[in-house]
Design a protein around this nucleic acid. Sequence first.
DNA 1: GTCGCTATCTGCAACTTACATCTATATTAT
DNA 2: ATAATATAGATGTAAGTTGCAGATAGCGAC
Lengths: 125, 125
Amino acid sequence: MGNLYRFCEPIVLLTLARLGTAHGYQISAEAAPFNVTHAGVDGAAVYRALRRLESSGCVTSTWDTSGGGPARRVYALTPRGREHLDEWVQVMDGIVGSIGRLTQESRSALNAGSHRKASGTRRGA
Amino acid sequence: MGNLYRFCEPIVLLTLARLGTAHGYQISAEAAPFNVTHAGVDGAAVYRALRRLESSGCVTSTWDTSGGGPARRVYALTPRGREHLDEWVQVMDGIVGSIGRLTQESRSALNAGSHRKASGTRRGA
DNA sequence: GTCGCTATCTGCAACTTACATCTATATTAT
DNA sequence: ATAATATAGATGTAAGTTGCAGATAGCGAC
């Protein structure tokens, strides 16, 4: 079925908005319920998305070396980040509408095409 | 907002299903109402999708040199192509659900985040 | 011939992502 | 002390889809 965008960026933004602050490893773990495709969000993609978002002013980061284990880069959403998530909401609304139309039309076309051969008894729904 | 997949393949399949037979240039023109993003489907992308679909047995092609102008490669859907469109419908249904959840949660998170500052009077839907 | 429209196809760059790999820190076991 | 493991971040390479520009070619108008 080819590759589909996994919407890594909005998932990261949303997870950050929900958690308040979080580091990459944590986001990667908590993002699971929002996966768009069967495959989960790749850790590497999360880190890259966070870097991109920081360089565009959507998140800020500080190093946290207080706890045990390796240092964590803790991220927080900026106002611009919240705006950006809002923009994503608009875009995704549009996508949902468009893809919805696509599926609806596809179902119609598939049903219309199967009239001839199926001799009308197997209503597939 | 970065690039998003334009769902060129299902759009091509659907347009073919609707028209019965069609050539690339025609599909490229008739596909406009099903665009997923603001940008239309690129002609080059259509031709490439048709080639891919042919090599995977989803469409067949024959040259039509009857009319005036350059020869047209006329495509038609195979049964496998119809199945493939049906698979796309399943996938896109899943995507619509997932992205719908994403937008819903994003709206909630954005509203929850604005409680503090907005002094709670602007109930945004 | 030259211009413009139709029609197909190719080249190159951009973007997101998957997978593997590498580094480094702290804890635990030997 | 050494080794293994879990945590945490980052990079390199390849794959796949797409946008844009342009090449090629047939046909009609001038």
